[in-house]
Nucleic acid binder design. Structure first.
Lengths: 200, 200
DNA sequence: TAATAAAAACCGACCAGTCGGTCGGTATTT
DNA sequence: AAATACCGACCGACTGGTCGGTTTTTATTA
């Protein structure tokens, strides 16, 4: 129901914005530069987005939705939970590969979320959803027997997420210092291994 | 050999800057606001620091030096490595407690380091030193027998640091969502436990 | 110890430049 | 012709940093 040209410029604005946000961060990214990179005037920009923040939020939400879909796609198999977790690590490797140019925006998300209430609400809700999903997986693992742990799955789920977040951020800050894909796999392996045994 | 008043205003500028950097981030923190909060004029500011960035770097280096000293203080005991690692987790808890107000600056460090070469060099060198120290500890653990792992200690050291970083950042973004001290201890326990056993 | 000169610390009005955002108008679609 | 898409000069607010001048501290004399 909508104009082709309009949609095209909108996409150009978004992808230019991702680029500039990655390079400069939210505050230092100027609307003028985004427009220039997108080959579009300021008028067009503010025709599509009421403000810089709105654009940022739109990008966040698109990103989160995509991650959500990826996780969904990986979940429904019938392999044991312990194996599914390791498979998810391989999904992280994918993230490193084909979103590596956009990785710095993940950092920017967290930064803005920690300071701006609007961003926080948009970012955090799905974030907690991820944690809930992991916790549910762990519970399922308990009942199916591939995971034996006595303590609560909630905390363990946060441990997994904290590790994943840590690896991602290290990958942003020190991209060439270590092979982060390997380290992601190794750490996840250690955590899963620990969960497969009962705590004395 | 130096002026008392001068040192005092310098300290006031620094602590005001920490506050503002935490609240607003580096870019959005204005020199004027820092000055106002410190009860000091702009002239005084630029008398003590040649630029905003210099001040930021000074704060980073002070912070890193402090962390380094803490780690040093915890290392030299003669307990097994596996236990020493768990003790370090308790050091993280300390960080959460008494530096909790300044935690957001850790995020800011990483952000700026990922974008500004000067900041990167200042931040990253000591960072890698931490990793080296952990790796050395793990090697020592192998020879002393409290740790049995076949693969390289370098990667494992990065796993530990990635997890620690992840927990810290989660604590910044979601301070009230979970008990991060507990989660830090739990995750570290899992990782150490995994390293105490030989891989299949 | 008091006077004094030099140096260091500090003040705040000011500057050039950038920012996000506006708006009256033009081009393109429907 | 009406609506949507787009243009770009322009605006007020604010930025990091400067600079000529004042106050305070320190060092040096007498």
């Amino acid at each position: 129901m909508t104009q082709q040209r309009s949609e095209e410029t909108r996409n150009q604005i978004v992808s230019a914005a991702v680029d500039v946000f990655c390079r400069c961060g939210y505050d230092a990214a100027s609307v003028a530069e985004i427009c220039s990179l997108a080959g579009v005037s300021k008028g067009a920009f503010y025709h599509h987005f009421p403000s810089k923040k709105t654009l940022f939020l739109a990008i966040i939400q698109g990103w989160l939705r995509e991650v959500d879909e990826r996780l969904n796609a990986l979940r429904d198999s019938d392999v044991p939970v312990s194996q599914a977790l390791l498979q998810m690590t391989r999904a992280i490797e994918t993230v490193f590969s084909d979103a590596s140019g956009q990785l710095p925006m993940f950092l920017e998300f967290m930064v803005q979320a920690s300071r701006d209430k609007t961003v926080w609400e948009a970012t955090i809700a799905p974030y907690q959803a991820y944690q809930s999903r992991f916790a549910a997986m762990l519970e399922q693992g308990k009942t199916e027997g591939s995971i034996q742990e006595t303590e609560d799955a909630q905390a363990s789920a946060w441990v997994l997420i904290a590790f994943a977040v840590g690896v991602l951020l290290q990958g942003v800050v020190l991209p060439d210092t270590a092979d982060w894909k390997t380290i992601a796999g190794r750490g996840m392996g250690m955590l899963v291994e620990s969960m497969q045994r009962s705590k004395e």
